[in-house]
C-alpha cells in the first residue's frame, strides 16, 4: 500500500489541498483488533445519538 494515496494528488489540481491517509492510518482501518475497539465505541456513540433523537 505504502504512500499510494499521495501519488493520486495532482500538483495544483483540484485535489492538491487534500489530506491523504498514510500507511499507518490505512493499516488501522483494517486492523481487526483496533476496529473491534472502534466498533464498540462507534456503536455506543450511535446509540447515544439515537437516544437523543427519540
Amino acid at each position: 500500500m505504502g504512500k499510494k494515496a499521495e501519488h493520486n494528488i495532482k500538483a495544483y489540481g483540484k485535489n492538491f489541498t487534500s489530506m491523504t491517509p498514510g500507511p499507518f492510518a490505512l493499516k488501522l482501518r483494517t486492523c481487526k483488533i483496533w476496529q473491534f475497539i472502534r466498533f464498540v465505541i462507534i456503536n455506543i456513540k450511535m446509540l447515544i445519538v439515537v437516544r437523543k433523537s427519540h
Binding site: L28, R29, T30, K32, W34, Q35, F36, R38, F39, I42, N43, K45, M46, I48, V49, K52
Partner: peptide
Amino acid sequence: DYTFGEIGLAGHWI
C-alpha cells in the same frame, strides 16, 4: 460531541 465520522472495518460491520 455527537457529530463524528471515520473510515474503517468497524463501520462496515455496522
